[in-house]
């Protein structure tokens, strides 16, 4: 496990809001996380819970109506919430690589695919043109582009969505970054292509001691990639821990619901545990534990006071009143504990 002193990135008590006509949207409400050298953390959570906003803050690419209310993003002796665009220029796409949900916006539509990759290699890796072309074709092959020599001279519009996404991944890897941030990079891809790309990212992580932040709602992908997992709900981290701790000893009711809401290949006749209701309106975030209204285990105090983090192990914490010493003993749903038992047996 990573040591304390090899922290490469640290987000401290981050609060981010958006000015919108509906009001002041409190998108991120006190998020903390740390990223160690050579580790992959996954951020999971419901749509709208603030995952993308958190990583956009790190990269300095929030939209104009965003306000960083408070907090710090510490990287290489700097607080990235305070540095100006010039500094971000030396980081973004270079020392910190980015792969986003929407591959269309990430590529230049009027530049040949090959050139978009070699440009990075020539600028960042100081390669000559010939080597850069060789390397680019190698990268294209590695992300599963068939006939890369032919594809090298084509334009983005000649590529399918999934192929464009693979090019974005090739470009991000070309600059040999220290940190790679992936926001749902494989959502649009087929499973066979997806698993190939995940393998590639894992391989590069091993080879170059890359640190990865991986956002996804696919728990299978999390299990495949993550050393540690952060679970977000309504702008906050509600639980974090090592991958095994989150999958096998989840403690927050939202994590329980998330883990039980989707079938795995073993799920048979049981009814799926759907999460009732809809996510909260973030213009008026609820008092107390934001998940309370949808939580069948909610207690009175959940509606009144926000739970602090309770320690479960040195690496595992959850913010739920259920862990308070005075709370009634509440085991996780039977269906989930059965599933966990089965998963451990398989493993």
């Amino acid at each position: 496990m990573a040591e304390k002193n090899d922290i490469i990135l640290e987000v401290k008590d981050l609060h981010v809001s958006f000015k919108s006509y509906a009001g002041y949207v409190r998108a991120v409400r006190g998020v903390n996380f740390t990223l160690h050298k050579g580790e992959t953390i996954a951020i999971v959570g419901e749509s709208g819970s603030g995952k993308s906003v958190s990583v956009k803050t790190i990269m300095g690419i929030l939209s104009k109506n965003a306000v960083i209310d408070s907090g710090e993003v510490l990287y290489d002796g700097m607080d990235l919430t305070k540095v100006d665009e010039k500094v971000f220029h030396t980081l973004r796409g270079k020392r910190i690589g980015l792969i986003f949900q929407d591959p269309l916006s990430a590529l230049n539509p009027i530049m040949k695919i090959g050139k978009q990759i070699t440009e990075v290699l020539i600028l960042e890796q100081k390669m000559n043109k010939e080597d850069a072309k060789k390397k680019a074709i190698e990268l294209m092959r590695a992300v599963g582009i068939p006939q890369p020599e032919v594809r090298f001279d084509q334009y983005p519009f000649q590529f399918s969505g999934g192929m464009r996404q693979r090019i974005v991944i090739a470009i991000a890897l070309a600059s040999d970054p220290e940190i790679l941030i992936c926001d749902e990079p494989t959502t649009a891809l087929d499973v066979t292509v997806q698993s190939r790309i995940l393998e590639l990212i894992n391989k590069i992580k091993e080879e170059r001691n890359l640190s990865v932040i991986f956002i996804t709602h696919d728990l299978g992908v999390v299990a495949n990639m993550a050393d540690r997992v952060y679970v977000m709900y309504a702008g906050k981290v509600v639980e974090f821990g090592e991958s095994e701790e989150i999958f096998f000893e989840p403690a927050h009711p939202y994590t329980w619901a998330l883990l039980s809401s989707m079938p795995d290949l073993e799920t048979k006749d049981e009814k799926l545990m759907a999460i009732p209701g809809t996510p909260p309106n973030m213009v008026y975030p609820p008092k107390g534990d934001a998940f309370a209204a949808r939580n069948q285990y909610a207690m009175q105090i959940d509606f009144e006071e926000e739970p602090p983090f309770f320690k479960i192990s040195d690496t595992h914490y959850a913010a739920t009143w259920l862990l308070h010493p005075d709370a009634p003993e509440t085991p996780m749903p039977e269906q989930l504990s059965q599933r966990i038992k089965r998963m451990k047996e398989e493993g």
């Binding site: 066979t192 290949l265 998963m343 451990k344």
Partner: peptide
């Protein structure tokens, strides 16, 4: 067979041993 071997499962124990 290839398709099934590529489906990620929410189980870190089996995921780490996956053979695609």
């Amino acid at each position: 067979r290839a398709l099934l071997s590529a489906v990620p499962q929410p189980n870190p124990l089996t995921e780490r041993k996956r053979v695609r």
